[in-house]
Design a protein around this nucleic acid. Sequence first.
DNA 1: CCTCCACAGGAAGCGCAGGAGT
DNA 2: ACTCCTGCGCTTCCTGTGGAGG
Length: 415
Amino acid sequence: MEKPLDKLFDKFLQGQSIFRNRHALRPTFVPDELPYRDEQMSRIASILGPALRGAPPSNILCYGKTGTGKTVVAKYVLKALVSKANESGVRPPLSAFVNCRIVGTNYRVLRSLCEQIGARMPDGSEVPFTGLPTDEIRKVLKTKLDSEENILVVVLDEVDSLLKRDVSQGNDILYGLTRMNGELTRSRISIIGISNDLKFKEMLDPRVLSSLGEEEVVFPPYNAVELRGILEQRVSLAFNDGVIADEGVINLVGALAAQEHGDARRALDLLRTAGELAERRGDDKVTQEHVREAQKILERDSVTEAIKTLPMQSKAVLFAVYALTKRGKRDIFTGECFNVYTEVARALSLDTLTQRRVSDLISELDMLGLINTTVISKGRYGRTKKIRLAVGKKQIGEVFRDDPRLGRIIDDILE
DNA sequence: CCTCCACAGGAAGCGCAGGAGT
DNA sequence: ACTCCTGCGCTTCCTGTGGAGG
């Protein structure tokens, strides 16, 4: 009898795997060269340059959509700056990197800074997770900084998320940091803020904006040619020679990512997933077929994830849309949707929300891209929203069937 | 041209949970 | 441990509106 896994295992034995270093396709990877970002790099480098002479650099705001290289450029320049300082025997600046989406409160930001520059409590212990007044921790940070003539460069990644969570509190955090320079005697802090949101500035307090936005660096999306260049560079790092079947593979990845407003992270994800797919199947080359498949997987995964993490009430509303679609309706109106939702809510023994609220939930589902809605007028018969499922019925059905609560009632509602 | 449907979507406010200050 | 504050999900009440039918 034929042993089906032989072929696959043989590949591992021969050591001829697809990947040379799959880490090179991950978003955290910082390559030795960053193509197409010379302008941004030299801008930032020239702004940070004074740090080498012990002078405080201006604060910087970096803008650009996701996957335009903001974070990687900031890390790269900072690394280069530190190593240049070391080479030339100058005191290197301190640096700290904070992702504000994860570290979202004043206290945690300060604590993270303390940790990264090795600031400790007066008794020598680590700064605790909680329990201290915020002022106290500021003092710890300031004391450490002022113990020598330091320049601290703080990278605040995804700063916009600070303000999205809470505008006034976010402003307080940023204001607190910018103000700290006035309270330090020997040292200086400068801030590199990174934002995905172009409208972020509008939410900033003017005092913060004037200080944080001293310099601005814009990161335009990559075009198809640039994406290609980036991909080629990473391919040679990440894959073994000859693994990519043909030119068309790279072109396809580039084209697909260019549709996503030139998101390089997306392109690399696609390539990595395609590679993993080929690997899992025991194929020895990555083909366009793998890429298309990878695209579908990424797409599916994000939709499934979006539905799964929906609050129960929103799931019920989406389920109502799904049920109506299943009954053969293409266009669904708010009223119908609400009626079916009521049935669903009863079947799930959920509180039944008002139509006003359901209308808002429908808008939210629209924004998530799970449904499409347009406001239309049916003249005599009123004005309403026309709702349509934006995702495959089959996939939604599967996700609902897997849901512990909806799975049970799915057949009752569908009849 | 006017009416009037079936909602859209704004404004205000309520109860609640969780976090900060004391 | 306690108040106070704030954001969130939600309700109530409201005004606004495109166009088919009269």
